[in-house]
């Protein structure tokens, strides 16, 4: 799995550049154009990172996160869920940049290559911000009757979180 995972990126880059040259595109100019966009995205994320890190660092250093994790550990132990990822699972459906920031903090705190760090990374990447997407798409056509769209959307979130945990714990 590691060998295959290591191959994906270099292969992907080479294939894209090959196709670009074959179609006679100015690949370097295009690359620079897109890279500027990347800088903008990072800048936009920066204030959110500051805000969320402040809150979670304070939560953690006050001892409250440990306290909560210990208090509910009888439930999370029973289902074999690492309670450390709970803050992420809770913020995930509501805020996109908030969940990126929370996942980053978990990875930094427990080790980016630890089991918990990897679970956090997969949860962060596995779905969009559910409530935001629903609000945006429904708002765009001014529809009020949701026909319970929230149920499949949240079940999809839960299913991918459970899968992430199973993949790394078993």
């Amino acid at each position: 799995m590691t060998y295959f995972s290591s191959m994906i990126i270099p292969l992907f880059i080479s294939v894209i550049l090959f196709i670009g040259i074959k179609e006679k595109k100015n690949v370097f100019d295009l690359f620079i154009e897109g890279a500027k966009e990347g800088l903008k995205i990072t800048l936009k994320l920066f204030p959110t990172l500051i805000g969320i890190f402040l809150a979670i660092y304070m939560l953690r250093s006050s001892g409250l996160i440990d306290f909560i994790c210990k208090s509910i550990s009888f439930i999370t132990d029973f289902f074999n869920i690492p309670s450390e990822i709970l803050p992420l699972a809770l913020i995930k459906p509501f805020s996109g940049s908030g969940s990126i920031a929370t996942a980053t903090e978990i990875m930094a705190n427990y080790g980016v290559d630890s089991t918990i760090g990897k679970i956090a990374a997969v949860i962060m990447g596995s779905s969009e911000t559910t409530f935001y997407v629903i609000a945006l798409y429904m708002g765009s056509v001014k529809i009020k009757n949701t026909r319970k769209i929230i149920i499949p959307a949240l079940l999809a979130d839960i299913a991918s979180i459970i899968t992430a945990i199973i993949l790394f714990i078993i």
Binding site: E23, G34, A35, K36, T42
Partner: peptide, 16 residues
């Protein structure tokens, strides 16, 4: 982020 957004810009402009 710059690296990836740059590569994706190339993807966007090909027949892919």
């Amino acid at each position: 982020m710059c690296l990836w957004c740059g590569l994706m810009e190339i993807v966007k402009n090909t027949s892919l």
